[in-house]
Amino acid sequence: MEIPSEQPIDQGPMLVLDNAEDVTRLGDRLAGVKLIVLNFPKFTDGRAYSQARLLRERMGYTGELRAAGQVYIDQIPFMLRCGFDSFASAQKGFAEALAKARTLFSVVYQPTGDGRTTVNQLRLQHRRSAAA
């Protein structure tokens, strides 16, 4: 797989993974890795979302996590929540959409590794402060 040339790779080891790869078995191969590229061969093939969350939330990966392949505007909110932080997309208007994507939905229901406070957590805080 090719990384678009306008997105230069930082100094340091990188991994480019097929979306069928079991990321929980990477073990030592993750050591020192600065960039992992996950692939969306079709934007409807969502396996890399699970890979991303496993890398962030179970394998403790903190380097750059890039989405490549069919990466479109309307997937950005999902990708951000799963831990992607860089995107290789040729779609027109992608950069503008990315800037807005974090505020497209002001509330989230699911706890993920992105650290956003979920609706249930907000409700609990609200109830507890009302009860106090």
Partner: peptide, 13 residues
């Protein structure tokens, strides 16, 4: 319903 709505990991099953 709430958990599944716009679930980031499971929207392209």
């Amino acid at each position: 319903r709430q958990w599944s709505t716009l679930h980031p990991e499971f929207s392209f099953l």
